[in-house]
Design a protein around this nucleic acid. Structure first.
Length: 566
RNA sequence: CGGGAUGUGGCUCAGCUUGGUAGAGCGCUUGGUUCGGGACCAAGAGGCCGCAGGUUCAAAUCCUGUCAUCCCGACCA
């Protein structure tokens, strides 16, 4: 491809709307343009990258036994009512109405459609396992679309659904996908980690996320410094490693603390460290008010709480209700004399003589002791993991890192097949619901994540497997015929080797061409300039290194092939 | 949904306080000079100042409404 013919409008300045590296660079380098909040056009370079990502995904899905299909974006309301998600999915689903006033959704995911599809035509254990996937646009009306492609309202996703006869067979499908996903991210050449994850609203029990590591990641991951354990903080098990404190119990005392509401307030007011305080959070769990305790230096993990309670809806209680029941406002609450059930994090029981609100504005208790002064209904792991915690597998130190969730695999079980009546007959003629799994990869997000992870001040640094072009050939001066002749020759030879080459034939100054080449992130640059040309040489430069190598013209193709295959 | 900010040529922004009918840089077009890290000179094209009302002799500027975009938050006391 000749650069002069390429639609690649690069921007010299950073568009004011972009904050993160991937958003800025994809805009500046002419990969994407915004149509409206969270919705983008993909320009030719982006399209090339996306196709490469898709092809790698496709190859690995096919290799694992998947069959590609295309399912509708517009989905009928009835299917979503059957699964129960029409009412559950909420504002995040784009909904529309046709001229007959019938309801539809723009598919945020495809469990309903595919379950209905398979239900119609799969009736026997002989037809399974069945692995179907598609690569397609998905629609989610995000509260706040953010960071360009990272959190869009329209995005490209690969989703595969597995249908099996029982849990054992599902396990095989799940393992296949787990391995396929690892191959995919290895082939994409991205630094990533697989973590244990919560399966969330989509249902099911086992779940893993594939995270591309990047400083701007939205997900916090803890990983063990010694073994393979890694998990999303939402999921990470917090071992109780602290020993129970042994100091003597002092007598409970109520102290006047005018205007002191937060943990930090009490640190400053009374010099009590956060780990000797108790945070009291009030939640409504399916209309029942409860109190939840975590140490003052910890954060409550709502997902763990919800899982332990087994409730449908969990949200923090409003201050009004709390005042009515407890007699105090947020910030002055505590377990002593708490009129509702108390759920405490494991660490609370180990504390002695801690401080908490007195359920009376402007008063706190000091020297509070679990067991003596209050009794929780339940003690459980309810907090978020932090760096320095002990690995639940090998007890070594956990570290924390940020990642971008690009893949997520779930065991769904029979949630959808039961709800929607997708059953089959087994060998014994018994009717059973199919056992399902679902497996997603955010394709457009993967492109953004790659930029987020691999860029420098000058622009994008594409990993070779997904670069829009592998090589860019830059004659320093397009008006010098000797340079252009060599450039065209190298361009042709590389193409003959099946290499994707961009020839920058524009009549621009060298600086402009170098800037653009760096910005759009082509991995290998071949520069044809007057100095090297005198020695029958050209310059070869890798985007991720500063070093420039001179290579004889007749050896350029080999040199490039070596780099590409490395 | 709550809070904050911003909407002025393709991009980045100035002008708004103190109303008088629009500017700069980049980009674009033409000509010339240049030519190894975003050149220079000259001449051009391009905007009813987000939209709708209102105040006024007069509105980018003041008032009201509305839409859009971005940021922070959306319940960790």
């Amino acid at each position: 491809m000749k650069y002069s013919e390429l639609f690649c409008p690069t921007l010299r300045e950073v568009p004011s709307e972009a904050e993160t590296a991937s958003h800025q660079l994809l805009l500046r380098a002419g990969y994407i343009r915004k149509a409206t909040a969270g919705v983008y056009s993909y320009l030719p370079l982006a399209n090339r990258v996306l196709k490469k990502v898709m092809n790698i995904v496709r190859e690995e899905m096919d290799r694992a036994g998947g069959q590609e299909v295309i399912m509708p974006i517009i989905q009928p309301r009835e299917l979503w009512e059957q699964s129960g998600r029409w009412s559950v999915y909420g504002d995040e689903m784009f909904r529309l109405t046709d001229r007959h006033n019938r309801g539809f959704a723009l598919g945020p995911t495809h469990e309903e459609i595919i379950t209905a599809l398979v239900d119609g035509d799969v009736h026997s254990y002989r037809d399974m396992p069945l692995l179907l996937y598609q690569i397609q646009n998905k629609y989610r009306d995000e509260i706040r679309p953010r960071f360009g492609l990272m959190r869009g309202r329209e995005f490209i996703m690969k989703d595969l659904y597995s249908f099996d006869v029982d849990n054992e067979a599902l396990e095989i499908s799940y393992r296949k996908m787990y391995e396929a996903y690892n191959r995919i991210f290895q082939r994409l050449n991205l630094d990533y980690r697989v973590v244990e994850a919560d399966s969330g609203a989509i249902g099911g029990n086992e779940s893993h996320e594939f995270m591309v590591l990047a400083d701007t990641g939205e997900s916090e991951i803890v990983y063990c410094t010694h073994c393979d354990y890694a998990a999303n903080v939402e999921k990470a098990v917090c071992m109780l490693t602290s020993e129970p404190m042994t100091e003597d119990m002092l007598s409970l005392e109520k102290i006047n603390t005018p205007g002191q509401r937060t943990i930090q307030d009490m640190v400053e007011f009374a010099g009590i460290v956060p780990s000797q305080q108790c945070k009291t959070l009030m939640y409504m769990a399916d209309d029942k008010l409860i109190a939840v305790l975590v140490r003052g230096d910890r954060e409550l993990n709502e997902i763990k709480l919800k899982n332990i309670l087994g409730c449908q809806n969990l949200y923090m209680a409003d201050e009004h209700t709390v005042r009515e029941v407890c007699g105090a406002s947020f910030g002055s609450l505590g377990p002593v004399g708490m009129p509702v059930e108390i759920y405490a994090d494991l660490e609370i029981a180990n504390l002695r003589n801690f401080t908490c609100g007195a359920n009376e504005d402007d008063f706190h208790y000091i020297n509070v002791n679990p067991g003596r002064d209050f009794k929780p209904r339940l003690e459980a792991d309810l907090r978020n993991a932090v760096a320095g915690d002990a690995c639940p597998v090998c007890k070594n130190r956990l570290e924390m890192i940020l990642g971008i969730e690009v893949g997520h695999i779930f065991k769904l079980g029979t949630k959808y097949s039961s709800a929607m009546g997708a059953t089959f007959l087994d060998q014994n003629g018994q009717e059973l619901p199919m056992v399902m799994g679902c497996y997603g990869i955010g394709v457009s997000r993967t492109m953004a994540a790659a930029v987020e992870q691999k860029h420098d001040d000058n622009g994008i640094i594409w990993p070779m497997p997904i670069a829009p072009f592998q090589v860019i050939v830059v004659p320093v001066n397009a008006n010098k015929e000797d340079q252009m002749v060599v450039a065209e020759q190298i361009y042709t030879e590389l193409q003959a080797e099946g290499i994707e080459v961009l020839l920058d034939d524009r009549d621009e100054r060298a600086g402009v061409k170098f800037k653009d080449a760096d910005l759009i992130g082509i991995p290998v640059r071949i520069t044809i300039g007057p100095k090297a040309l005198q020695d029958n040489q050209v310059e070869v430069k890798k985007r991720w290194e500063d070093e420039v190598n001179r290579v004889n013209i007749d050896q350029v193709v080999n040199a490039v092939l070596t780099i590409i295959r490395a």
